[in-house]
């Protein structure tokens, strides 16, 4: 396949970036999207140009590093991560525009690489449980009802990739927060910190400069892990209960 790539290039966090156009030949349908970018970078290095900086780590869809906006869709046209996206989802002769996540709390470090540590600070603010370290407790000592356990498992699949923020017209991280709040809130281990968790996480979220949720739903459609919109309702419900009880 032969492709025209329009890629955001930005020297450093303070430089002004711009979209650059590259022609890339010899792309195989079986390549992953990131392998295609590797191919482009080989070509750039050979011709003495600076390779395109982009993030990746596991390349198996579990770490959430490979954040790319591809033709206006977070992680591209399939419901998966960029590393699990393959070039068979595109056609010969396509023009593909690749941009970094756009959000004030996710500053661009270089080209397509953004700093998502705002998410870490939200987790630090409340997305944890307190447990004694040492030998692991007996797995079944704290029973969790099956339906609650299932819901917790389903939303615990969030990999913190930030696609929800990238896709949201408000730049809100409510889906990410809702996933963690629902995950911990459904389980017995999450109860002691349940009410302070939601207040502290939302406080940190707003402090980081993420936008407010207006329930548009772009996030759930962009999420590679198919986190459903009802986690945002759960977040709101927990927040309402917490504020009512004076947290």
């Amino acid at each position: 396949m032969k492709l025209t790539l329009k890629i955001w290039r930005q020297e450093n966090p303070t430089a002004t970036g711009a979209i650059h156009t590259y022609e890339l030949d010899g792309v195989s349908k079986d390549m992953s999207f990131l392998e295609m970018l590797d191919l482009l970078n080989e070509q750039l290095v050979t011709s003495g140009e600076e390779p395109v900086a982009f993030d990746s780590d596991c390349r198996e869809g579990i770490c959430g590093m490979c954040s790319l906006m591809i033709n206006g869709e977070a992680h591209g046209p399939e419901v998966t991560t960029t590393c699990q996206l393959h070039m068979r989802s595109f056609n010969d002769g396509d023009t593909i525009t690749i941009e970094p996540w756009r959000a004030e709390p996710f500053p661009v470090l270089k080209d397509l690489v953004v700093d998502r540590s705002a998410f870490d600070r939200i987790i630090q603010a409340g997305g944890y449980i307190s447990a004694n370290t040492g030998s692991a407790p007996e797995a079944n000592s704290v029973p969790a009802p099956r339906d609650k356990a299932m819901r917790a498992f389903n939303v615990a699949t969030c990999i913190g990739c930030g696609a929800c923020v990238a896709a949201c017209p408000n730049g809100s991280a409510s889906l990410f927060m809702g996933a963690k709040i629902t995950h911990l809130g459904e389980l017995p281990q999450g109860q002691p910190e349940r009410w302070s968790r939601v207040v502290d996480m939302v406080g940190q979220h707003d402090h980081e400069g993420f936008g407010g949720c207006t329930n548009i739903g772009e996030c759930a459609s962009a999420c590679p892990k198919e986190i459903p919109l009802d986690v945002i309702s759960q977040l709101n419900k927990d927040l309402r209960t917490a504020l009512k009880n004076g947290h």
Partner: peptide, 20 residues
């Protein structure tokens, strides 16, 4: 205003997938 501040740089290409 929060939305405007949260996304000061717009996308060159942005598709709508889950909104109405």
């Amino acid at each position: 205003s929060r939305a405007a501040k949260a996304r000061p740089v717009k996308y060159a290409v942005k598709k709508n997938r889950g909104s109405s």
